[in-house]
Design a protein around this nucleic acid. Structure first.
Lengths: 278, 278
DNA sequence: GTTGACCTTCCCCCGGGGGGAGACTCGACA
DNA sequence: TGTCGAGTCTCCCCCCGGGGGAAGGTCAAC
């Protein structure tokens, strides 16, 4: 006796997936019915497909995209682990992002947003030992820690704090050029490390204390200051890690200098908009 | 001197939102530019809007829908807390769901899925003290604990384990009828509690041990067994909490009987599909 | 044979934007 | 004052992962 065939409705009941979703998965090649009547087009599932459907449902609940679920199902057991691990890493990233968002909101919605102190200073050009790459915004954190580890492994004597340069495109287009560096006497060429010239710039700088969860708020304050001074942004933002994870695990002790290259007489017009003469 | 006007590109750079997104938020009434040139249609933002844009960005990163972000921004500080708390509760739900999905996947992908023992038994009709409601699938957990608490507060002598009935529509249509009950001598009418008759049924039952994270796997195994016996599902699923949170906080000690009402000679056809004579 | 529940395809809709076309505007520089 | 390139405008179609519902075909029970 062959096992009974389940109609899409029965199968939906057993797997807690909707009929619509099952049809969608059929179309997407994710879960093909055991049999399809060529005359009527009726889909028939087998009870052996229930576990598969459940696996799919659960991966989807974890936010795994449909094509990726398919490759997990098609993959051998060996690679399967990697795919799942990769997705779990993404979930962890999301969690970190959630934590940052909460910290940032706490500061943004707090009744008294403390004012920042901005200093305008001319930064001279310097040649540093840096690692540069074209990366996606989402990958910045992972890339940063990898690059910093490689720099630290150089074992070169440092003559100043380390820092980074981040293109504005990284934020507006979701990917762009990034660079982290150590200030050293003579920059070597080892692995990804190259001697890189940080060009001279007029920087509007402020110092962000503490962990970077809410650094965007400080960025915003600095940006508002720059805009209010009728200055224009001109180039990648500079970060200098005055006190960072390399110095202390105590996050509240961190101090990060943010420097935005600016030039005068460009952004907006200080006056003259019709009717805006207040 | 009036503050400079920021073009959409400048503002995008300062707030790390894309131009597309800013236009979208304008259209959605979420963030209206400080000025809009009626002739050219150009949008001009002010530096004072930077914090607002950041708040929006962060709420969006937390997955808050755009209309809800708008109401948070429009709300007075007093109600704002409630809206945010409600959203944080949703985030917590998501987290629980993620945990369940991981537990369920662990069991589904484990090499040796232990077989279940199914027992077919006739359950007699009984009148119980129950709380019934038409609810959404997502709300089941919250509703369950509330209803159970109300039942426990009755202080009535129980003559058997408590349980619940859950309509299949709850799973296929995402909302439906649910009921939880205590087995008592005489069912009172207090608050939401009513005397309810649980109708007699032929049940295919099995016992799920441990917490409910992976109970869907047991459901699937039971469903596969029922389908393979050429039985049809007939009515809401019965859950009996033989050992549950009311008995012990030790989740691994929980025992939940799942009973699916079945009737014979209905689902599928045991044989005869053209070409399927294996 | 009838009937009602079930199935099929098809099309449009949602949120939250992204990509790109084609046209217009801005401001800097000559 | 003209020019030119970068920036902006609107408009339309696209993505995912389905949901809602219409119009019509099928299944099996009685």
């Amino acid at each position: 006796m062959s096992p009974p065939r389940l109609t899409i409705g029965d199968f939906a009941q057993l797997t807690q997936l909707s009929r619509k979703t099952l049809r969608h998965y059929h179309e997407a090649g994710l879960l093909t019915p055991d049999q399809v009547d060529p005359a009527s087009g009726y889909r028939y599932y087998s009870s052996a497909q229930i576990p598969t459907a459940q696996v799919i449902r659960r991966f989807r609940e974890l936010g795994m995209p449909v094509p990726e679920v398919r490759s997990v199902l098609l993959a051998e057991v060996a690679e399967r682990g990697e795919l799942i691990a990769a997705h779990l890493a993404r979930l962890e990233d999301q969690l970190l992002q959630t934590q940052s968002a909460v910290a940032s909101l706490r500061r943004l919605l707090s009744p008294a947003p403390p004012a920042i102190e901005v200093r305008l200073r001319a930064a001279p050009a310097q040649v540093v030992a840096g690692i540069a790459a074209d990366i996606d915004r989402a990958a910045v954190l992972a890339w940063y820690s990898g690059a910093m580890a490689e720099l630290a492994a150089l074992g070169v004597a440092e003559v100043g704090p380390c820092g980074g340069l981040y293109d504005n495109e990284l934020f507006t287009d979701d990917h762009g050029q990034a660079m982290v560096y150590l200030a050293v006497e003579r920059a070597p060429t080892v692995g990804r490390v190259r001697p890189i010239e940080v060009p001279a710039a007029e920087l509007a700088t402020t110092v962000h204390p503490g962990p970077h969860d809410d650094i965007d708020v400080t960025y915003g304050q600095l940006g508002a200051w720059v805009a209010d001074q009728a200055l224009a942004l001109a180039g990648p933002v500079h970060e200098v890690y005055l006190v960072g994870p390399r110095d202390t695990p105590e996050e509240s002790a961190w101090r990060t200098e943010i420097g935005w290259p600016v030039f005068r007489t460009a952004i907006g017009r200080p006056d003259g908009y019709p009717g805006g003469h207040d």
